[in-house]
Deep mutational scan, measured.
Amino acid sequence: KSAVKALFDYKAQREDELTFTKSAIIQNVEKQDGGWWRGDYGGKKQLWFPSNYVEEMI
């Protein structure tokens, strides 16, 4: 599983989504079709976030 870095702040709209700030590192990313991926951040595990808010880390 990979890690991504947030390009923008994102505030969860639902309880199954992540809230994060710009430059946050989201771990254990599971990529899905449809523009939403799952990952771990801030003590939350495998919640959804919009993939267009992040960049992949190499």
Rank of each mutant, 00 (worst) to 15 (best):
L47F: 11
L47C: 15
K22D: 01
D16F: 08
E56T: 09
N28I: 04
Q32K: 13
G42C: 12
T19L: 03
E17Q: 12
K1Y: 12
W36C: 07
D33L: 11
N28K: 05
K22F: 07
W37E: 00
M57D: 09
E30F: 13
A6I: 03
L47P: 00
Y10N: 01
I58W: 14
Y41F: 11
F8D: 07
E15D: 13
Q32I: 15
Q32M: 15
V54G: 03
K11M: 14
T21R: 12
E55T: 13
N52A: 14
K31H: 05
K11W: 13
V54A: 06
R38L: 09
R38P: 00
N28E: 06
V29R: 00
Q13F: 07
S51I: 07
L7P: 03
T21G: 10
D9M: 05
S2Q: 12
S51A: 14
A12H: 05
D40E: 02
Q32N: 12
T19R: 01
I26Y: 02
G34S: 08
D9N: 09
E55L: 09
P50G: 03
E15H: 11
W36T: 03
I58M: 13
A3N: 13
E56M: 08
S2G: 12
V4C: 15
L18N: 04
Y41K: 02
K45H: 13
K22Y: 07
F8V: 10
R14P: 03
Q32Y: 15
V54N: 04
F20C: 04
D33I: 10
G39D: 00
P50E: 03
E15I: 12
S2K: 12
A12Y: 02
G42A: 11
S23F: 15
V54H: 00
L47Q: 09
G35D: 09
L7T: 07
I25T: 05
D33C: 15
E15S: 12
Q13H: 09
D40F: 01
P50I: 04
G42R: 09
K31L: 05
A3K: 14
D9H: 06
L47T: 04
D40Q: 02
P50D: 04
K5S: 06
D40M: 01
A6C: 08
L7D: 04
K44E: 09
K1C: 15
V54I: 05
S23D: 15
Q13A: 11
K45G: 05
D40G: 01
A6N: 02
R14A: 12
S51W: 07
F49R: 02
I58S: 13
P50M: 06
D9G: 10
N52R: 11
S2E: 10
W48K: 10
G43I: 07
K22E: 08
I25C: 09
M57Y: 14
Q27H: 14
Q46K: 08
I58D: 14
A3G: 08
V29Y: 03
N52C: 14
D33W: 09
T21Y: 12
F8W: 12
G35M: 10
Y10E: 01
Q27Y: 15
F8L: 12
K22G: 05
Q46H: 09
V54S: 03
Q13W: 06
F49Q: 01
E55F: 08
G34D: 08
Y41W: 08
E56F: 08
F20S: 00
G34N: 09
W48V: 04
Y10S: 01
W37C: 04
K11T: 15
Y10K: 02
Q13G: 08
E15A: 11
G43W: 06
S2R: 13
V54T: 07
Y10M: 00
G34Y: 07
Q32W: 14
E30C: 15
I58Q: 13
I25V: 12
G39E: 00
A3E: 13
D16P: 02
G42S: 08
K1F: 12
K11Q: 14
V4P: 02
K31N: 02
F20M: 02
K5G: 00
M57P: 08
D33G: 11
R14M: 08
K1G: 13
V29W: 02
A6E: 03
N28A: 05
D33T: 12
S51Q: 09
P50H: 05
N28W: 04
W36H: 04
